[in-house]
Design a binder for these strands. Structure first.
Lengths: 190, 190, 190, 190
DNA sequence: AATGAATGAGTCTTCATTCAT
DNA sequence: AATGAATGAAGACTCATTCAT
């Protein structure tokens, strides 16, 4: 019999990769990176341990792909047309985008926050993280400057801190935390 | 030399216990719980591995004691004289107390936040944590109710979320984050 | 295109087999048998892992074929017309044949020597090896006997030991070792 | 009860380290480095796998210590009083020293030769090896120069090659190879 | 004839914990 | 109160081999 075509192989690969990524995201978020074993991931994904290494060079790389992959969602949320003229609606869209992501993908946020506090792991994607973070600060400062508030930098950092606070409290207590109303309060800070 | 009195033994014991607790706190905060080995802790504390087990039943118990021990600091900050009449100054004192702890002991906060996102570990102090948290919410709701704001519960949860956001951003960037000004902004939310 | 004839299939087969043998020889010699994976061999040969198993039952069998295959070259070098009258020129031809093989195929020698010291692997071609080795000793003894030296057996074993010493030092330092002059010295020992 | 004294601990350590080194030497020599597992070594030494890592950072380091340790025996054999006047007796002593080592410790030589042909492993102690080797060449060249032979360098390299050839054939066939007579023949080459 | 996904046993290594002293 | 040798279970990772296509 002739071998499978390249497309067939690609399909198989993509399916399995997704299976693994999903399983790993859930476990990393729910138990922490260090406390999740490759065996657990394989079991959760319904594959053998060995196969994971067919698709990811290491447990670390697997984490990296999850993190970088999720990161792109964030990056796409911050759309500023004119850097010298950041509009309120753009900031609101940014906030709402994040709120939606939070609702749709609380697991990913869980992971994101947990990683912030695992220095050894955090080193892996420090660079991307800070690049994104600083860009966001810059835009927020520009926004508040344009608005003419007294201390735009503090305002910007405060808002972003509030942001993460909301995120943490929401993912820690999805049922109880009033996310939508908190969103309104954040918008009130603009 | 005369044999040591019970008091002296107690002192030696306390000294060693403290040594171990300090070493462990630093390492847990700096590297994560799972990535810190008992050997590291013993080395850092200048004692043998075996001795640690003389004072703590397990690595997990050691963590537990650190967490519970640090927790008491939090608890003591929230002093409300009359539950039916929460005063603004009391809330401000609570905020300032926390800000001071943050400044004096960022490591502990680092650990505290990191643990929030390691469910396995979090289980150790879940009960105390939620009890404290709910009490705090209750007081804050009472405060806002008395003040007559529209949605006291949301206000309360928002403020506490902001609180943690500030904490996280501060311990993540001690040099750069404008903690004092952020504190003023928080007070402004009261 | 007309269907390939049996001959053509044979050719394709032989080509692939050769590709694999060459790739494996290089890798086994360069990294050791145990440290060379089947994946590496397949990659180096430009085929899939699965195909290798179409031609060789196992990695071990592949090694066996390389060893046996290379061994035949040795065997053909020792041409003695009359066992009771071993001529000097025949021995010189044997030496020169080996020297030429060394120059043309140092990789094979590298492998050959490395296998001598991996008993598990050595077992694969022990029998052929000792048969060849003893025959060679016998001829060399006959040669020295005829020549009338005092201790022909020791002479014979010494010469063969020298032989391997030269081989090892040459393949270990192809640029630096004066093979041709060493060859002359060996001939001087006859 | 009071803890063991430092001397007691040291005794235990030294004993175990030796046990491990002996077990490892035998196995590495007999099966090759790559084909010997840490489990085998532990079993052979009568200890747990974990304990090996108490004394050696890795399997590689264990190999390193064996190799370096054995290497010192070689180095001590080559004693040249005056580099510009290498005496025949000094060279003979060198040869005899090696022959004695061969007899007493064929396993070590087995290992030494097997490592020469495991490139990945060889890299670990390349530097020491070549330093020793080049020094030996230098002295032998000096010896032959002083003696006034035509091509001292070739003579030197030839002799050292012979040396290894003898070694290989001896350890490969301890019973059958006439080592003492071969030694005399080597001395005859001086 | 050919592919590469998939498996599972086995490898090196780490580490919490125990224990003799 | 104190040490560190010792263990064993578990973890990340590799790889020869099989198999559906």
């Amino acid at each position: 019999m002739s071998p499978r075509t390249k497309e067939q192989f690609k399909t198989i690969r993509d399916e399995k990769v997704n299976l693994i990524l999903q399983a790993a995201l859930g476990l990393f978020a729910g138990r922490g990176y260090a406390s999740t074993s490759v065996s657990m991931i394989a079991k959760e994904a319904g594959i053998s341990k060995g196969l994971m290494y067919n698709y990811f060079k290491s447990k670390e790389e697997l984490l990296g792909e999850i993190v970088i992959g999720g990161f792109k969602q964030f990056l796409d949320l911050l759309v500023i047309e004119d850097e010298s003229n950041v509009k309120k609606q753009e900031v609101i869209d940014f906030i709402d985008g994040n709120v939606n992501l939070l609702k749709q993908n609380p697991e990913y946020y869980m992971l994101y926050f947990s990683l912030l506090f695992q220095p050894k792991v955090f080193d892996l994607f420090k660079v991307e993280f800070f690049a994104h973070f600083e860009k966001t600060i810059k835009y927020m400062v520009a926004y508040y400057e344009k608005k003419g508030v007294r201390d735009p930098y503090t305002k910007a950092r405060f808002l972003l801190a509030v942001f993460d606070g909301i995120g943490i409290h929401y993912v820690s207590d999805i049922e109880g935390f009033p996310l939508d109303k908190a969103r309104d309060m954040m918008v009130g800070l603009l």
